[in-house]
Amino acid sequence: MTTFKLIINGKTLKGEITIEAVDAAEKEKIFKQYANDNGIDGEWTYDDATKTFTVTE
């Protein structure tokens, strides 16, 4: 398992979430669903070196 981080830079929601997953593709799906469930629609980036997804509205 690898630890992945999501950084949220939303208009109404900001924060960080850290979760373990098998791979980045699995985690991306979970993070995007979390963002969608919380009304966050923005630009996504991924840094493989730090295993960090960022979504910015």
Rank of each mutant, 00 (worst) to 15 (best):
Q33H: 04
A25I: 10
W44N: 01
I30H: 05
I19A: 05
G42Q: 04
I40Y: 06
A21Y: 09
E28T: 05
T52S: 03
F53V: 04
D47G: 00
K27M: 15
A24S: 12
T50S: 07
I17D: 00
G39N: 08
T52I: 05
A24C: 15
I8M: 06
K11A: 09
T45A: 06
E26G: 12
N9H: 05
T18M: 09
T56M: 05
K27Q: 15
F31S: 01
T12C: 15
D48W: 07
I30L: 10
F53H: 00
I30P: 01
E20Y: 15
Q33T: 05
V22G: 07
W44P: 00
T52Y: 02
E26Y: 09
G39F: 07
K51I: 09
Y46H: 00
T52N: 02
M1P: 07
T3M: 10
E16Q: 07
M1E: 04
F4K: 02
N9L: 13
G15H: 13
I17Q: 01
K29D: 08
T12L: 12
I7N: 01
V22K: 10
D23T: 10
A21S: 08
G42N: 01
A35S: 03
F4Y: 13
Y34S: 01
N38C: 14
T50L: 04
I19W: 14
T45N: 05
A35N: 02
E16C: 15
I8V: 08
T56G: 04
I19G: 09
K27W: 15
E20V: 14
L13E: 07
T54Y: 11
G10Y: 14
T56N: 06
E26M: 09
D48L: 05
T56P: 02
A24L: 12
Y34F: 13
E20R: 13
K32C: 14
W44I: 04
T52M: 03
D48P: 09
I30G: 02
T50W: 02
K32P: 01
Y34R: 01
K27G: 15
T54S: 05
I17W: 13
D47I: 03
K29H: 09
I7L: 03
Q33Y: 04
D48K: 04
K5E: 04
I40A: 02
A24Q: 12
I19F: 15
E57R: 13
D41N: 12
I40Q: 01
N38T: 06
E26Q: 07
E16I: 14
V22W: 13
T54D: 01
K11N: 09
Y46Q: 00
K51R: 12
G39K: 04
F31V: 12
E28G: 07
K32R: 13
K5C: 13
Y46E: 00
D48A: 09
Y34I: 13
K27A: 15
N38W: 14
A35W: 07
E43T: 11
D41E: 12
D23A: 06
F31M: 10
A35T: 06
I17N: 00
L13R: 04
D37L: 11
V55G: 01
T45F: 08
G15Y: 15
I30Q: 04
E57Y: 14
T3I: 12
Y46A: 01
I17F: 13
M1H: 06
V55W: 13
E57D: 08
E57F: 15
T52Q: 02
D37E: 11
K14F: 13
T2F: 15
L6N: 00
N36C: 14
G10L: 15
I30N: 02
D41T: 13
E43R: 07
E20S: 11
T56E: 04
L6K: 00
K5G: 01
Q33P: 01
T3W: 12
E16A: 07
F4G: 03
D41K: 13
Y34V: 04
Q33N: 05
M1F: 12
I30T: 03
T18K: 06
Y34W: 15
K32V: 07
K5W: 14
K51L: 06
K11F: 13
I7M: 04
E28I: 14
A24F: 11
I17L: 08
I30M: 06
N38H: 13
L13K: 05
A25V: 09
I7A: 01
L13T: 08
K5Y: 15
A21G: 15
I30W: 14
K32D: 03
E28M: 15
N38M: 14
I8P: 00
A21N: 11
I30F: 12
T3Y: 12
I19Y: 05
D41H: 12
T18L: 12
Q33G: 04
V22L: 10
Y46S: 01
L6R: 00
K11S: 10
Q33W: 08
Y34A: 03
K11W: 11
I40C: 11
K5T: 13
T56W: 13
W44A: 01
A25F: 13
G10R: 03
D37H: 04
G10M: 14
E57P: 11
E28W: 15
A35V: 07
L6I: 15
A25D: 10
F4P: 02
G10P: 01
E57W: 15
I8W: 11
T54P: 00
G42H: 03
I8A: 00
I19P: 01
N36D: 10
A24G: 13
I40W: 12
N36F: 14
F53C: 13
G39Y: 06
K51V: 06
F31R: 01
E57A: 11
T45I: 05
V55L: 12
F53Q: 00
Y34L: 12
T45V: 08
A49P: 03
E43L: 10
G15F: 15
K32I: 11
T2V: 13
F4L: 05
G39H: 06
K14G: 05
D37W: 10
E43F: 11
N38R: 14
I8G: 00
K29E: 10
K11I: 14
K27E: 08
N9D: 05
F31T: 01
M1N: 08
K27T: 15
A35P: 01
I40E: 02
L6D: 02
K5N: 06
D37G: 04
I40H: 02
T45D: 05
I8C: 14
T2P: 05
D23N: 09
I40M: 04
G10Q: 03
M1Q: 06
